[in-house]
Design a binder for these strands. Sequence first.
DNA 1: ACATCTGTAACGAATACCGTTACGTTTCTC
DNA 2: GAGAAACGTAACGGTATTCGTTACAGATGT
Lengths: 142, 142
Amino acid sequence: MAKNCRFAVAVHIASVLALSGDEPATSEWIAGSVNTNPVVIRRLLSALAKAGLVKSTRGSAGGSVLARPPEAITLLDISRAVEEDEAPALHHQPPNPACPVGKAIQPVLMRVLDRAEAAREAVLATTLLSEVMAQICAEAKA
Amino acid sequence: MAKNCRFAVAVHIASVLALSGDEPATSEWIAGSVNTNPVVIRRLLSALAKAGLVKSTRGSAGGSVLARPPEAITLLDISRAVEEDEAPALHHQPPNPACPVGKAIQPVLMRVLDRAEAAREAVLATTLLSEVMAQICAEAKA
DNA sequence: ACATCTGTAACGAATACCGTTACGTTTCTC
DNA sequence: GAGAAACGTAACGGTATTCGTTACAGATGT
């Protein structure tokens, strides 16, 4: 998979918000838990808000809360919200159409890569934020 | 520029070798089909050779051939051969253990990401190079 | 008014990937 | 042997991406 930690941090953010419940959490507080800069958190919160997963309020006593209960948020929702719309990982330059392989390989590769990605997303789609929360609580006690 | 074309180019290389059969293909010839530099091809051929998928011979009239028939090579074999051993896409800095989420989230995330990756790899594991070849031939005729 | 907090732009360092040049080594042919 | 052909690999530079940081404008409650 990828080398960026956006998804990991976004799930972290959502987990903190799930624990906070109705109490708005500030980006600075979340940043303290993630151990990074508040702007990094706000960037991801902005993406999550655009996807309708969180709601943020400005001003004093502001902060962010989940827009839906954790049972209604899948990890695929979070992934789609914060990951780039990944262009297919095909050739940089179009291959040589004079070669039969170069002429025909790209659609074939696209189909396989799409199937592989769909399988990966199916796992994320069946994992709820509430399940992650339950595992975090279990892990914290152990 | 896109993310990582190593897998796409490696499948392209393997397809060219499959079509060449016993006739060794030179890195320059393959580079002509992929539309890139021969050294890029040789780097990937080197990785494929280390994985036991191709055999290369040096010297005049040298080149590369598949080490196994296309029915005995899966796309997962190729992916494993040329992709980096991907470190987990977790936090850059370890999260704050003083927060219950920060303390417990990493193993939970690891498990989910491992399951997702396994699902992706399962698709590649069930796709043979010979099947890709068949699709390329069908595509080339259309 | 003022403190607090979000939203976003801008910049820099670190990193990854790929194309390219260069050069040593191996092998075939004459 | 000599030379040509081909691989193996190191090194370098351009480009893109990611993340952390600073800075500042806008919104909101006290």
